[in-house]
Design a protein around this nucleic acid. Structure first.
Lengths: 156, 156
DNA sequence: GTAATTGCAAATTCTTTGCACGGTC
DNA sequence: GACCGTGCAAAGAATTTGCAATTAC
């Protein structure tokens, strides 16, 4: 989706929920939109936002991210490094996308396609659990690292 | 599995990897085994272990859990509360079990059955990603809370 | 105008580390 | 007796909070 359009839409969402639209929040949103594919930590978002708006404080970024999480505009995720990362929810996505975490290089790839439709049915029927969302991450070796391993085998 | 048997087996695993079996480590293991169904935090494990072995320190618990994670005897997981929880890996389990997190009461139910066999095939074939493990958590309303909602609807 | 929002610094929370002491083979 | 493991307290990292000043509406 168009960045400007997405920004506008999110602004409305903020307004509708009674939040003010400050330059700090706008800058933070912009950073999230521009780095949609990444999984930035609060610190990383802070540093990037600082480039647009040098006077912003880290606490404000945390507070903004809290609001955005509450409004389900972003999802707070955590992989193996014990610090929170923030992932923009795709506009119109009904489910939370899946992740492929490479144990070799640490890269995180996203899968938009919902692979859990059948599995969720099983969970609802067999376990009586009413599913509203999910978190799925595969750990393994990404395609690039598999190739690398073949070309440079067993380096000390 | 029998607790005593499981403890013995883990002792061997520790030994095989060159770690000593101290009373503190044994007490920690025992706590994990006795609370297999829970998802205890380090602090909770520490408090329970302290009951068996009052002189244990929190740092030792952290160090023990680090070793156990390294040896894949426990899995470090993190749900929505931003603190690490430790989950005993079932003996002989090839895959990491799934979780059902209830957004109403916070309970966490486990699913042993591997529901991802087909999905992993898709990931390997379609995305060229070599899967070694996975983390799957469903968010939603557990059976008990669904029942509760029906009996006591919309309380202010 | 006024209530929400901000930046800063201090406080909190979870986890790790340094170090001298104790236990084991 | 070398070495691993421990407890304690201090350090560190990530996040939250209190507060006076500022700003959006």
């Amino acid at each position: 989706m168009n960045t400007t359009l997405a920004l506008k839409k999110t602004k409305e969402q903020l307004h509708d929920s009674g939040f003010k639209l400050t330059p700090q929040r706008e800058a933070t949103l912009l950073v999230l939109l521009e780095n949609e594919k990444d999984h930035l930590s609060a610190e990383e978002i802070y540093l990037l936002t600082k480039q647009k708006n040098p006077d912003i404080g880290l606490a404000t970024v945390y507070r903004t991210l809290e609001i955005l999480t509450e409004l389900k505009i972003v999802d707070k995720v955590s992989f193996n490094d014990g610090l929170a990362r923030y992932d923009l929810r795709k506009a119109g996505a009904k489910h939370f996308h899946h992740h492929l975490l490479c144990l070799e290089c640490g890269s995180i790839q996203e899968i938009e396609e919902d692979l859990l439709i059948d599995v969720e049915k099983v969970v609802e029927q067999q376990f009586g659990f009413q599913v509203s969302d999910h978190r799925l991450t595969f750990h393994g070796i990404c395609a690039a690292c598999q190739k690398k391993k073949k070309t440079t085998p067993t380096q000390p």
